[in-house]
Design a protein around this nucleic acid. Structure first.
Length: 573
DNA sequence: GCCGTTTTCGGCCCGACTGTTTTCAGTCG
């Protein structure tokens, strides 16, 4: 099986971790991390680029040396430089550096001076107070380490679904807005960029008296731990484990601070380098030429100084948005109210909780022109999937209900299972009676990559199928995508005129942003759907919209922004 | 290790907070 970009990225990150402990040139460490980040967001696999004999060193952050290492990893699955380094550094040291207050410098000090190379050694040194003999280690740090060692190890990279932190974010904003002297409160960071998950919340406040805001912030009812509390910056952990960072800035810095705290880091670094090129300086307080602030009140002012159009937060990932902004080629991103209907919804005929009529009423209330009723097919017995007989009766029922509407229609459809061999779970004659066929994988998630890919391609090549639902099958934080070659899936969808779904369920968001952008580039028709199982869930569409925007989609890229007749014509194969 | 209106060497984004110092290093974002 070809090596995945993420695996190469993991090797580079591990290389960076080890080099850091070895006290290597920090810029060399950064080079590995930058390259890892490039690989993670590349939709095209290194394996296929190498097979095409492409010039990898033309990619940003990849030079001659890393090109050679990538080619070696693709060819052999191994990275000798990493293996050699691993032999010289005890494996436990990297784990130590994940403890709070311990970075590579202190970990190296622990190892060099006391031979501490794992959590057990460290615990002993902390309990015996021997750790205090090491320069730079005092009682505060010892206590902090003792606390951390007594708790279960933090889940690496714990992230929260964006939908799960929205309510908390709104409460916090309202709480801070009520503080006297506060002019403005906004949530920045990955939350504002609408990433599918957030690692923490970054809250920006405009106020004169930072200490007052900071004090109020750390006194929020849900705070279980205060990590830092200064006059412009504070950091807490909430009961849920969510970390929240606060920054307070004066009005004239609002735009610069918002830009800075919205990120992404890669986007910021590129902008800062552009400032350096012009002999300016960009930080969270403004854009400066010498000591003079030349922009900073709004984000737009700053982009303008660089000759760039205003870049929407969702695009700020250093995936080409800066070049596009310079050339006036930023997309006109799709908006929630561009959507004319939903093409994936369930009713109580299968595993939904509401009647067909109630789902229709909810879609009408959203101002939609159409709603596809896509109950499950027979193979999905746990979801009470419909056999041909029940589906035939549902078709009749929908016809009767449609007779009562004006200017709105329920589309007769099915979310039909793609069986293990790639065939569909319902016979052709019943599928031909439907307006739309949505096909999806709900079983045999563990097929080998080649088999899973072939299974999916067979469904895509089936002329009866209009849409592939949740193409990767992932559940964020719970279930990895099934092993599948998404490059081939996208290419086949484009070649066969089969649409791919962007599923709006907050834990699916499937396709993801990277694949959305790749699908658009390949000319694939895209559909935004909610997969609603109750009337209220039709409103989850906004999460799908967020990801579509992150994937650079315009209204014209999405089939269900079209009126009924146009939409049906586009889905036709 | 990457990169180039500072082009093949010498730079590499920038600042706040903490704990340990006695002017600053390390960590973090």
């Amino acid at each position: 099986m070809p090596v995945e970009n993420a695996e190469i990225a993991d090797m580079f990150d591990e290389m960076a971790d080890l080099l850091e402990i070895e006290d290597a040139n920090p810029f060399r460490v950064r080079a590995y991390r930058n390259a890892a980040r490039t690989l993670r967001r590349m939709p095209e696999s290194m394996a296929s680029l190498v097979a095409k004999n492409a010039d990898l060193s033309a990619l940003p952050t990849i030079g001659d040396d890393l090109e050679g290492k990538i080619e070696e990893i693709v060819a052999t699955g191994r990275m000798p430089a990493l293996e050699n380094l691993k032999r010289t550094i005890p494996p436990g040291l990297v784990a130590l550096s994940s403890l709070p207050g311990l970075g590579p410098k202190r970990v190296k000090l622990l190892y060099d001076q006391m031979g501490i190379h794992d959590l057990k050694d460290l615990t002993r040194a902390v309990e015996s107070n021997e750790i205090l003999d090491i320069p730079g280690f005092g009682p505060k740090l010892r206590d902090r380490l003792r606390d951390a060692l007594g708790k279960p190890p933090p889940i690496a990279d714990k992230r929260f679904l964006i939908a799960n932190v929205e309510a908390r974010a709104e409460t916090l904003v309202a709480y801070l807005e009520a503080v006297p002297g506060v002019d403005e409160v906004v949530v920045a960071g990955s939350f504002r960029r609408r990433r599918e998950t957030v690692g923490d919340l970054d809250i920006l406040v405009v106020a004169k008296d930072g200490k007052a805001v900071s004090d109020r912030f750390t006194g929020f009812e849900d705070v279980v731990e205060i990590l830092a509390a200064g006059s412009t910056k504070a950091s807490v952990v909430l009961r849920s484990g969510l970390q929240v960072d606060l920054r307070v800035v004066p009005r004239q810095s609002y735009g610069a601070a918002l830009l800075y705290f919205t990120g992404s880091k890669a986007h910021n670094i590129t902008l800062r380098n552009m400032a350096v090129d012009r002999h300016w300086k960009l930080n969270e307080y403004g854009l400066f030429s010498g000591n003079a602030q030349i922009a900073g009140l709004t984000e737009q002012d700053i982009y303008e100084k660089f000759g760039l159009a205003m870049i929407p937060p969702e695009l700020r990932e250093d995936r080409g948005e800066i070049a596009a902004a310079r050339r006036g080629l930023l997309p006109e991103l799709i908006r929630r109210d561009d959507i004319r209907g939903d093409l994936h919804a369930h009713t109580d005929w299968s595993d939904g909780s509401a009647s067909i009529t109630d789902m229709g009423a909810a879609a009408l209330a959203l101002g939609y022109d159409y709603l596809a009723i896509t109950d499950h097919s027979q193979h999905l017995t746990v979801a009470n999937g419909l056999d041909p007989g029940r589906l035939a009766r549902q078709i009749e029922k929908i016809d009767r209900i449609n007779a009562t509407y004006q200017g709105f229609i329920l589309l007769k459809a099915s979310e039909v299972d793609i069986l293990k061999d790639g065939s569909l779970d319902l016979p052709d004659d019943i599928l031909k009676q439907l307006d739309i066929v949505v096909a999806a994988i709900h079983s045999a998630f563990d097929l080998p990559r080649e088999d899973q890919t072939r299974r999916m391609l067979k469904a895509i090549e089936n002329p009866l199928v209009n849409i592939i639902a949740h193409p990767s099958g992932r559940l964020i934080g719970k279930r990895a995508p099934y092993a599948i070659d998404m490059e081939r899936v996208i290419a086949a969808a484009a070649a066969n005129g089969c649409a791919l779904e962007i599923n709006s369920q907050p834990e699916r968001l499937d396709l993801n942003d990277v694949h959305i952008k790749a699908a658009k580039a390949a000319g694939v028709k895209l559909v935004l759907s909610t997969d609603a199982h109750d009337p209220g869930s039709l409103d989850l569409m906004r999460y799908g919209i967020d990801q579509a925007r992150r994937g650079w989609l315009e209204a014209g890229d999405v089939v269900n922004t079209r009126p009924l007749a146009d939409m049906m014509r586009r889905l036709k194969r």
